[in-house]
Design a protein around this nucleic acid. Sequence first.
RNA 1: GGCUCCAUAGCUCAACUGGAUAGAGCGUCUGACUUCGGAUCAGAAGGUUGAGGGUUCGAGUCCUUCUGGGGUCACCA
Length: 648
Amino acid sequence: MSNFSIEEQLKEATVQAVKDLFGAEASTEQIIVNDTRKEFEGDLTVVVFPFVKFARRSPQQTGDAIGAYLEEKFDFITGFNTIKGFLNLSIAYSHWLQIFNAICKEENYGQHPSTGKKVVLEYCGPNTNKPLHLGHIRNMLLGYATANILSAAGDEVHKVNIYNDRGTAICKSMLGWQKYADGATPESTGMKGDHFVGKWYVRYATEFGKEYKAWQETAEGQKVFEDWKQDEKAVKKTLKEIEAAKKKAKKEGKEIKAEDYTLQNYFFKKVYEQTYMNTYSKLGAETSEMLRKWEANDPEVRKLWKMNNDWVYEGLQETFDKLGVDFEKDYMESDNYLQGKKVVLKGLEEGLFYQKEDGSVWVDLEDMKLDQKLLLRKDGTSVYITQDLAVAENRYADYQMDDSIYVVGDAQAYHFQVLKGVLQKMGKPYADGIHHLGYGMVFLPSGKMKSREGDTVDADDLIAQMVEMARELTEEQGKVETLSKEEMEELYRILGLGALKYFILRIGAKKSFVFNPKDSIDFQGDTGTYIQYNYARSQAILRKYNSDDYKQAFSFDNGIEDLEKELIMLQYKYPSVILEAATNYDPSIVTVYAYNLAKTFSKFWSAHSILGNSDEKVTAFRVALTANNARIIKSALNLLGIEVPNRM
RNA sequence: GGCUCCAUAGCUCAACUGGAUAGAGCGUCUGACUUCGGAUCAGAAGGUUGAGGGUUCGAGUCCUUCUGGGGUCACCA
């Protein structure tokens, strides 16, 4: 790629100019090269302010001096002008053509040579007690696209998944099934496995709610509340919270039911639920009992557990396939949670951690501006972070990676800081390469998604809905009657998923956004569909041209059109766009690029005739431009996990 | 309260990591050749970049003080 990097050539030329003209040593890093703004003459612009002090002249004079020098010494520069300290340089169109000819010859244009860097990228991270929702979709699209982009930038990338396949939540879904399902299975009900299990998880929550509500009326429940009311400080704090919650609900335009905000109801709902679950609840006791049995390897419970999880895996795999994401390896929390304990004890032995009198193990991360963190409970069992330490270690044994990327919601930013901190303290070779790729939450118009209450956008539903919308729109417009039924179905899938993926990936990862299922996603304007449409039209041109004559090296005596040059400049940027997206772990850079490419091509399409030229060479050239553009659009969209249709 | 992320046109998002007059799409309004695909193209209107201060040739971008919002600060995962 670097052999035709025009920016580098220009930077080196400028360094030489500054040296010869002003006797000053500049480095290429100091030199800023931008695209020239459309309203000025020129292609590339050098910012001259950095050299003004060497030159001891005005920006205008400095720019003119450098410009004159460059124009004289370098053939590829054909003209210049200096405006307000910006040196605009015109690049010979023949030079752009050379670049274009070189791009056309490259097989995997955009793919960078190997960096030798190994990267493990973890994404998705489902629980085995419920199906995936919109948040997971954002996660998977980000993770999958980032992995592709890193590969294109030359890294060796391993995509892995981590299943949270044990613990209280999974016991709840198991218990829900055991108590209420009456032996039903996904097969017997025709339900997708993950939805089936999720159903019993929700059922558990409902039954627990009933039990809890009933208990609140009992003398025991009332006494708990009355006792708590004696604690003035706690009551005061809670009253404040209630006011805040009310205000918030009002702001979000939610209906306010007075009974939700009485002190008693709020106390039971928000303050006391966990305690009730652990002390009085029958269902809660059964859950803990099941968890204990699971940890003790009770055969019955393990069998139930395996059945529960296998149902979920099967269901999830279907969703992964539909979305087009994949994993090289699955890590299971259940395989790692015990090992984490050993890791911690070893660190304790080495004096990296300390033990409190009750036997719990802690790490002091205050020198990293983090807190004291618990690593092992007083009963010796592990917490969330303990198992992540083990997973990290196992992963290193598997891959010896330089970088580990965790695609996990922003809510866990603190957790990953701590994880990295602990691993650094332990002197692990992979610690510094840990990077948390966080992303903002997806909200519904009604607020946060709550899976326990079934208030979510289900991943499978959403995908189906998008495909359906693509169908309706296509039929409405009476398009592509020439396709067979299967081809049509395939097209709807490509269009629906393309719109969904583009819509989500074009938003910077850090931003939270509100997803409105009602007016959902556009198929017009800055959308995946627009770019796909662009590709389909290009294919139509190629079909019509129906020849390989465009595969040749071009040169013209009379120059080329501005839009043609603009397209070449954009196409030429593709590799550096990939690199930028990779260093920032940011797929949205690729979406923006793909859109610009499509937009510029659309302009070109309407401004010039591609096939109908008297000069066959011009036609061949424009077809070559079209083919190249289509190739890059396809490649860029594929990086994002978006497919392209040949007709639509 | 500590830490952290976010705030740009009515709405959804950009802005090449400090560069020129802040750009797109949606929505609104106006237009597009009997010729390559109108899911398109051309144009109009729409902005004190949440507020103030600072750093410098230059700030949406960096520093700082506020304001508003999200997240987090569990022997939950």
